[in-house]
Amino acid sequence: MPDRAEQSVVFVIDDDASVRESLLDLFASVGLHALAFASPAEFLSHKVSDGPNCLVLDVRLPGLSGLDFQAELAKAKVNLPVIFITGHGDIPMTVRAMKAGAVEFLTKPFRDQDLLDAVQRALEQQRACQTQKKSEADLEARFQSLTQREQEVMTLVATGLMNKQVAGELGVSEVTVKVHRGNAMRKMGAITLADLIRMSQALGLSRRG
């Protein structure tokens, strides 16, 4: 999906202009779209696109430190993979960052390949995450397009009941159940009964039923 790759942005937050400049040039040399900010506040004021992004964050920042900012993001449930870069890191700092879910912790001056690898990894991770989220959202949208009766039939079928049993359960004729089931499969885009059951599980229908 090349269009998605183009959408992805590497955000850089570092208070040192030279470092920002060099990083932007490095990302440009490998064809990555990057945006640089001098502080977390400046970053937050910028509209962030949905695409698979990642954040290259300096630990030592004016105002909020990089580690604190990472915590803020987690608290705000912003799903953005973080790669730390620092001029003078120690082990407790590293441990804290990695525990909080950082992708990588690099000490300046770092090997460019290490940073680029980390960025790729972060983007992949983000992309996979977003893909899964998107399919889940699709599935949910399709399920919501079913009528209430169709949802009921689909739920009961997913628990393994036969048409006759579903009809008995709902107090309708077996023919009606068959019609509802056919509609549900068509609307959900399920080719086989197995597909429908898998979708039901993804939606967690057995719980709802």
Binding site: S18, E21, S22, D25, P109, D112
Partner: peptide
């Protein structure tokens, strides 16, 4: 000192 050094390496 590390900042310019880092920038040098990256550049």
């Amino acid at each position: 000192v590390n900042q310019p050094l880092s920038a040098i390496v990256t550049n």
